[in-house]
Design a protein around this nucleic acid. Structure first.
Lengths: 106, 106
DNA sequence: CAGTAATACTTCGTGTTACGATGTATTACA
DNA sequence: TGTAATACATCGTAACACGAAGTATTACTG
């Protein structure tokens, strides 16, 4: 899949992955895999970006001797998803523009 | 509208704008405006990129004392649009993932 | 006729971003 | 003992959109 095309979806996808339940890096990648594949370096960049934007909070938990960072979505993060739904309507209209056939004067 | 979100659409939108009829820079911007707004610098960058990718050809025409560059879509350009339609299906599945409610065990 | 808007294309610099490469450290399994 | 899986982190890079600024002509407007 075209990198450019999925760019706008990544942030919102990560938020969606932690929406119903707090999650951590490795699990987020696994959960998203069927829909979008992204590398670890990309994910951690995104998580840091979303944290800076106050769309999620982080909590470090020890799990089997290893540290895990659990990410929790905030209200701002929920709002981001809601806003995305609105933006998607614009996306649909653009899609129509791109795919409409030449039926100018049928 | 989020810049990232429209990134993947821009190239294909420009191709769509010249699909039915050869067009030139200023006109392309005007035609796209109701759907997507983009600056001149962005458009000319895209046009050059699409030309390098052999998705369009250029022809310079004098028009009222001024030079105009008319852009013509190639077969590769047409194919790009067709491929986009396929990619859109993936986009839709990602959209589903993002917007699906928590109806795990309704 | 001077001034301004519109048309039309070009170049430069910058900030954002996705990602490959690489590294560290632990647990689990063969 | 070695390798895979888990888990997170950092660095450098290339692609990209865009604002700013520039050049040059035509069209209009007071």
């Amino acid at each position: 899949m075209d990198i450019q095309l999925k760019r706008g979806l990544l942030d919102v996808c990560v938020l969606a992955a932690i929406r119903s339940e707090d999650s951590y890096g490795y699990k987020i990648i696994k959960d998203m895999k069927p829909y979008i594949e992204l590398s670890e370096s990309t994910l951690y960049t995104i998580l840091k970006r979303l944290e800076t934007a106050n769309m999620l909070t982080v909590r470090t938990v020890e799990h089997g001797g290893r540290l895990r960072k659990y990410y929790h979505i905030t209200d701002a993060g929920q709002k981001r998803i809601a806003d995305f739904k609105e933006e998607w309507k614009e996306m649909m209209s653009i899609y129509q523009f791109v795919t409409k056939e030449d039926d100018v004067n049928v």
